[in-house]
Every structure is written in C-alpha cells, then in structure tokens.
C-alpha cells in the first residue's frame, strides 16, 4: 500500500503541530522519521495511521481516503505500534501477540490455523518465542517492547508504522530490531519508524524524513538528509562523523549556540 499526504496540517490546543506536509510512503522501503522532541513525529505517524483528523490536507491509501478504504480493511493494511504502548491487563505474551490478529477474525470467528501460524512467525521474528508463557507484568521494559512489536508484526499488514520501536532496547536488540524492520521492507512492506539514533537511521533506513517545528525540513536518502546544515537546523547540534566497514556513523558531539543553527537559506 502506498500512503500519500497532501498539504497535511494538524493543530492541538490552537497550536500548529504540523504544517503543510506533503510526502509519500512507498511499499518496499524502510523510512526513518526523525526530528527533535516536539517536531510532530508522533502526530504525523498517527495521521498516517488514520487515527487523527488533519486540520487541513488529506491522507490517501493507494489513492483512496480512509473512509473509502473502510475501518477493517485499513486495520488489515496498517499495523500501528504506539510509543511505549500501555498494556492494561496481565495477559500472557502469546495472548497479547494474538491481539494483532483481531482485524483478520470475523465477529464470531474463532482463532484459525493461519492466525496461530502468524503469531508463531511474529514471536520468533521478534525473538520472543521463549517469553510466550510469561505475563506482561513480569517482563522487562525491552522484553515488553519486543512482545508489543511481535503483536504489530502478527497482523502481517503491508504497512508497519512504529513509534520509537528501539527506544527501550539494549544495543544488541536495537540492531536486531532495525535489521528486522529492514527485512520486512525487503519483503515488500512499507515500514516507517520514529527514531532518535542517527547512526541506526543512517545505516538501516532507505529513506529519512526530517521534521522540525512541524515542517518537513528534508527527505530522501540518509546521505542527503543527514547533512551538517540540516542537523544543525533541526537539533542545534554539531555532529562527529566516522566510517566503519564502509558504513557511516554519526555521533551527536556538542550543542551549538542557537543563532548559528538558523538555516542559511530558507
């Protein structure tokens, strides 16, 4: 599924949180959504998922509006993983992952063999098969995040929108999670993840979207987005760069005094 936005704006409490964002989410690409706190990343992701109404502009799914696609079809088409998602009852991990199959089940239909198979695939892909019998309250923050990721994967939707999927993970599982999301894109899914780690974004993503103050500052391949000027303008930081095994790494080095952060060309 190809998601497009046209002149998308959003407001909250009278304040503009997104202004005139036009972009496209392509199938088969891993897109990183980056930008400082409060830039509008989560708002954009929720609009892409059809969870919020834009103040202006529109979102289309293969050219159709959310209403035309229909609630259930949209739920089968887009898996949404909220930021540090709540889990309100002490479900076992396996039952939690099975919730991802709800869009595929009829109003009275039971759990089918296909649902069980999808849950098994999701559990093993997210490295959570050994946690299946544990109740959510007994999991560590990172284990919980991986189980929630497995829940989103279990939907096996053509689009996966993940809000900070690696925030709670240790370095090993961060790398594994980024590889997993990239593999999902290689198999044809459209994957969008909100990220804060610029090196992970540079190494694993096919495309980056850089938001600052609710506006689209830059988009394209990581090398074109992660320029010194863009990072200075968005985050107000200077970057230390390096290379390892032919891949770049970027370390936030020091904050820049605010006047130098103004973009030189509008």
């Amino acid at each position: 599924m190809r998601i497009e936005t046209h002149g998308l704006s959003a407001t909250a409490g009278g304040r503009t949180i997104l202004a005139d964002v036009t972009l496209a989410i392509e199938p088969g690409a891993f897109t990183g959504l980056i930008g400082p706190n409060g830039a509008g990343k989560t708002s954009l992701l929720r609009l892409l998922a059809g969870l919020a109404e834009p103040a202006a502009g529109r979102v289309t799914y293969d050219g159709r509006s959310a209403a035309q696609v229909g609630r259930r079809a949209l739920a089968r088409g887009i898996a949404y993983l909220p930021q540090s998602g709540p889990v309100h009852w002490p479900l076992r991990a396996e039952a939690l992952v099975m919730l991802g199959r709800l869009p595929h089940r009829g109003p009275l239909g039971g759990i089918a063999a296909a649902d069980r198979a999808a849950v098994e695939r999701a559990l093993s892909t997210a490295d959570t098969a050994h946690l299946r019998g544990r109740t959510v309250g007994t999991l560590s923050g990172g284990e919980r995040m991986r189980v929630l990721l497995a829940r989103a994967l279990a939907t096996e939707a053509p689009v996966l929108l993940a809000d900070e999927p690696v925030a709670a993970l240790d370095p090993g599982h961060q790398l594994a999670c980024m590889a997993l999301l990239r593999d999902a894109a290689r198999r044809g899914s459209g994957v969008v993840a909100v990220l804060h780690d610029l090196t992970l974004a540079a190494r694993f993503c096919d495309r980056l979207i850089l938001l600052a103050n609710g506006s689209l500052l830059a988009e394209g391949p990581p090398s074109r987005v992660l320029t010194d000027e863009n990072l200075c303008a968005a985050y107000g930081i200077a970057i230390h760069r390096g290379e390892a095994g032919g891949e770049p790494f970027l370390l936030p080095w020091h904050a820049l005094p605010s006047p130098t952060c103004l973009p030189e060309t509008p």
């Binding site: 969870l51 739920a75 949404y80 993983l81 709540p86 939690l96 919730l99």
Partner: peptide, 23 residues
Amino acid sequence: LSGARALDALTLGEDAARSLGFD
C-alpha cells in the same frame, strides 16, 4: 457481549484498539 473483541483490543490502549479496526 458484542463488545468482547473491542474490549480485548483496548488492553493495548485506545490508539492501538482503533488501529486494529474498532469503532
């Protein structure tokens, strides 16, 4: 009883429940 599935989905919070297709 007709809300059973939606109540299951609400375990994950309102956004996730809506993204799973529940009104």
